[in-house]
Design a protein around this nucleic acid. Structure first.
Lengths: 295, 295
DNA sequence: TTATCATATAAATTTTATTAATAGTAAAAC
DNA sequence: GTTTTACTATTAATAAAATTTATATGATAA
């Protein structure tokens, strides 16, 4: 059996059209016919129903079931390809979401430098949500990921190692600045500056809104935490942010949330279960975990 | 790329000998040489070091890393093959460990009969530990599995639905029969009849022994619960058994365990995440879950 | 030195995949 | 009710690929 045939098969399940698949792979149409015949013979199953009357190719239950496995197979091979491409580079492709990269990671870099690990790191920045997908696809080796729930993803090993609260930040001019804490439900009337979809802040914020059943008054949405803070300082609105992103010395007032059920900003270290750890990777993980525990 | 090449590759990682692999697949030795060359070219990586001086073929880090993925791929295809072979039989191959099959399952059969589901069931009996492996390999469609911890296996969906205690059972003649409950640590001097390795009872029992740091006096080991009970009735020894396997009407006395930290006998319904559920499968799962909740 | 073991190479052969050309079939368009 | 169009299947020819046979190479062991 040939991988190529599996690729043809998968595309056929997707497009349900032999000619289109042929064109897609720049081969002749009979090539696809033959490939599918080979696969149907190999698995001894009818995978498609060629019913010309209904003007669409039907995929059988067997066809869909096989496709589940074929997808897994093709992904596995693609992942292997990407991994092997990197394996001899002595560099570890390390995913670092912006907030973690700005406010948490710098505190670990001295330790990494001491161990001579920094030069083996190649960081890649994107939102935590994308990160998990990139890990799964093999486009990353290792990643720090922020989440609201502990990461439970088959194929991924995740070590939860930091747990932060969310806070409300306001300008010193804001009436709330006199308080030390506040309940989210008392913020119905406030104007909010919020972070973009890619941030889990967004998800946590929506959760809160849903919990208290109110529609927040969002005056501005940004993907830049500095912009968000600048606007809060100008008292344009208040914001919802992890405590990690609010160093003490800033001209901002942060209020604890008193709500009994509240989400947390979790930081985990994640990698694929079948990613083989070389000595550099081992050292890196150990150092990251140790540093996380020292704080 | 050909699946055959991947099979050759995997065996070569295993045996580290070209000629042996060739013999294994009944092909000539150059076939393997060529196959490996193709794969090394495809992945653009050195996978083996042919160092004749050390008299053994060395597998590189890349080689091992690739093998991780190759194993996954080969398993996925083998699973697909088995699944598709069964898919048109309208039968669901249903794994049922002996204890669950004898003491729990019969209580659900009336509901299954009412729904006309029994005729679609083909049950297969083996220990819970094997069951998970068989599911993963695609040799089973669905299984009831006993475990001490909730099942957390990537690729497997498991619904925990029953939770039983473990008990100590003794003959009415036994001194302990006058008690209602007992702590495991007070059983050091007893003679035990225990179940075989395949049973999770065995694991739970060992856990207890380890916890209290004692070496149990095991007078007989069996894989048959009836034999175990018969021997307990004869007062040959006492036993450690789930409450589910001790119906009230038997001439046995069961004692609760008072230990604060004790394992539980969990029953879960499990299937592969990418096992597509047809209407029969859906109905079956719904019925099983409903019945479990009714008790 | 010779024998032995393990892998590589090369040419010939076999097997398999692909193509070009064409046929078949049903629905849509004229 | 032909003709066109859109899809898929079939066939023979061709191209590509994997496999074999025979042999070479290189290293250790006898």
């Amino acid at each position: 059996m040939n991988i190529k045939d599996l690729k043809y098969f998968h595309q056929l399940v997707k497009y349900k059209n032999f000619s289109k698949v042929a064109a897609d792979f720049s081969v002749s149409q009979p090539t696809i016919t033959m490939a599918i015949k080979r696969i149907e013979k190999q698995f001894n199953s009818r995978l498609f129903i060629r019913d010309q009357s209904h003007h669409e190719l039907q995929v059988t239950a067997s066809g869909y079931q096989l496709d589940e496995h074929v997808q897994q197979v093709l992904n596995e091979l693609a992942t292997a390809q990407k991994e092997l491409k990197r394996i001899n580079s002595t560099k570890v492709l390390f995913g670092l979401p912006p907030i973690i990269g700005t406010y948490y990671f710098p505190s670990i870099t001295p330790a990494l430098l001491r161990q001579g690990l920094m030069k083996h790191l190649e960081t890649f920045e994107t939102g935590s949500k994308d990160m998990l997908q990139l890990l799964l696809k093999g486009s990353l080796d290792l990643a720090l990921i922020a989440s609201l729930q502990p990461i439970e993803q088959h194929q991924i090993t995740a070590q939860l190692f930091r747990n932060y609260n969310f806070k409300i930040i306001v300008s010193p001019q804001h009436p709330l600045a006199r308080q030390k804490e506040v309940s989210f439900k008392d913020l119905v009337a406030e104007h909010f500056i919020v972070l973009d979809e890619g941030f889990i802040h967004n998800t946590a914020f929506k959760q809160f809104c849903q919990q208290y059943d109110f529609k927040p008054n969002i005056v501005y949405q940004t993907s830049d935490v500095h912009v968000l803070k600048a606007m809060v300082k100008e008292n344009v609105g208040i914001a919802f942010l992890t405590e990690i992103a609010v160093p003490a010395n800033e001209e901002l007032v942060s209020l604890a949330l008193t709500d009994p059920q509240q989400p947390h900003f979790l930081i985990s270290l994640a990698y694929r279960k079948n990613y083989r750890l070389g000595s550099i990777q081992q050292q890196l993980i150990t150092t990251l975990v140790e540093e996380a525990q020292n704080k």
